[in-house]
Design a protein around this nucleic acid. Structure first.
Lengths: 241, 241
DNA sequence: GCAGCTCCTTGATCTACGTCAATGAACGCG
DNA sequence: CGCGTTCATTGACGTAGATCAAGGAGCTGC
């Protein structure tokens, strides 16, 4: 039915309303959507940051290359997320589509004009910047003090906490092992081994390359190493149940 | 004597003008300065973020505690820096004085009123948030992909790039080894051994606990592992001279 | 349905860094 | 000024995770 075909779209809008308030999303509403195929870049590290993007559908990774073949994924972004808000002059990352994506763009100039013009937009923008900062801090903690198992569990919890990411207890993991490894500061082999180990402990089971069946959210939360502001919340949520 | 005491003050003002423009600093100008002794906390992780602080003099570390005795230092801040700008509800870190400090504070409410009121303040505030974000990204790269030597060299370069941090080729390092280790995601022993190794290679020499004599900025830059937006700049600066 | 990818898993080994423990240098205090 | 405390260095050893290498599983296209 109509509902069905409109669904992904509506979900994106909904996600936006829920996470950022209606405001920031409305800036993009006038722009037409562009299609970006899996693997294609949306913008490049070092380029002039002339645009901001909103992800309407799909998953995007942000990465930086350092030296010979070292890649760091600094963030994943999902439907409703805005990419490029926290930039001054140039892009500090390359953004690439992890899955086929629909995006909208707005020029940096227009964006800032809109933000300056509309009093309700400004707090939403500040809010976004602060959230990005908080996320970066959590990631610094993860990279600095967590072991492989804690990193993986934290990552899975983050994914699982997105509304609609789980269908029953099956979690969709759109990115491949290399993406996960580069995000968590590990190798592909360690990610793989850690998943196997978690399966042996009845925490979760891999079902194909892109699905994880979560057997125990409690164990996952306990193994995530805490103090990440997110897992703290999850712990809480879990212990209340 | 009065001159003397006013001197540090003036320098802080100057540092502020240079790094942030006159605007954000002016918000704090009405506030009286408070003294914070070495080791004392300025605010605590988890507390309501009711104030923002500006460091007038001294060095401050921001840290988070995770689990049993794991501490992550997410940033160091220096004279002129504003602490607590990128927060929504509560402090995401504990801030402590690394050296004796003078600080000023302003209530979050007043701060946001001022920012909303003054059109010139807003870009300065956005600018600050974006810079913090960029710094967090650089740190994520460091923690995720750099080895001990690259981390240390990057850190020393960052310190050395602050105006006035070097007296001739002697760099003041106000923090102790544990602070450095917790900032770089290493242990105190590894930091110590790495300094020794750099000394053996004629890159630098430790002079007491808190001074490093830099023997070759070029080597330092080469060993820092690049791609950190900072070290790129430094490389440039060095190669021009 | 099988050929040929790409991506993932598993195993064997290697190593950078952590841990544990002892010694030595700096700084404050009586 | 020497004594004690704190902080830093150095050494011996252990280990989590990287690296290297060999299958295996899952798509894609004929």
């Amino acid at each position: 039915m109509l509902m069905q075909s409109k669904n992904a779209f509506e979900n994106a809008e909904l996600a936006v309303e829920l996470t950022r308030g209606p405001c920031l999303s409305s800036v993009f509403r006038a722009s037409s959507t562009e299609l970006v195929e899996t693997g294609q870049a949306i913008c490049w590290e070092g380029d002039d940051a002339k645009h901001l993007f909103q992800i309407v559908e799909g998953v995007v990774r942000l990465h930086r290359i350092i030296g010979e073949g070292r890649r760091v994924i600094t963030a994943f972004h999902f439907a409703g997320d805005v990419v490029g808000a926290s930039l001054l002059g140039e892009f500090l990352f390359t953004a690439e589509a992890v899955t086929d994506c629909k995006i909208r763009r707005i020029s940096r100039k227009n964006f800032h004009q809109e933000v300056a013009r509309c009093d309700e937009l400004r707090p939403a923008y500040i809010d976004l910047l602060c959230r990005e900062n908080a996320a970066a801090h959590d990631q610094m903690v993860l990279l600095s003090k967590k072991n492989a198992e804690e990193r993986l569990c934290t990552f899975i919890l983050r994914l699982a906490s997105r509304p609609g990411a789980r269908r029953r207890d099956v979690l969709r993991v759109p990115m491949n092992r290399q993406d996960i490894a580069d995000y968590l500061g590990l190798t592909i082999e360690t990610v793989s081994r850690t998943i196997t180990k978690l399966a042996a402990r009845d925490v979760l089971v891999a079902q194909g390359r892109h699905d994880l069946k979560i057997l125990s959210m409690e164990k996952l939360a306990r193994l995530s190493g805490g103090a990440d502001d997110f897992s703290a919340k999850t712990c809480h949520r879990v212990s209340i149940h």
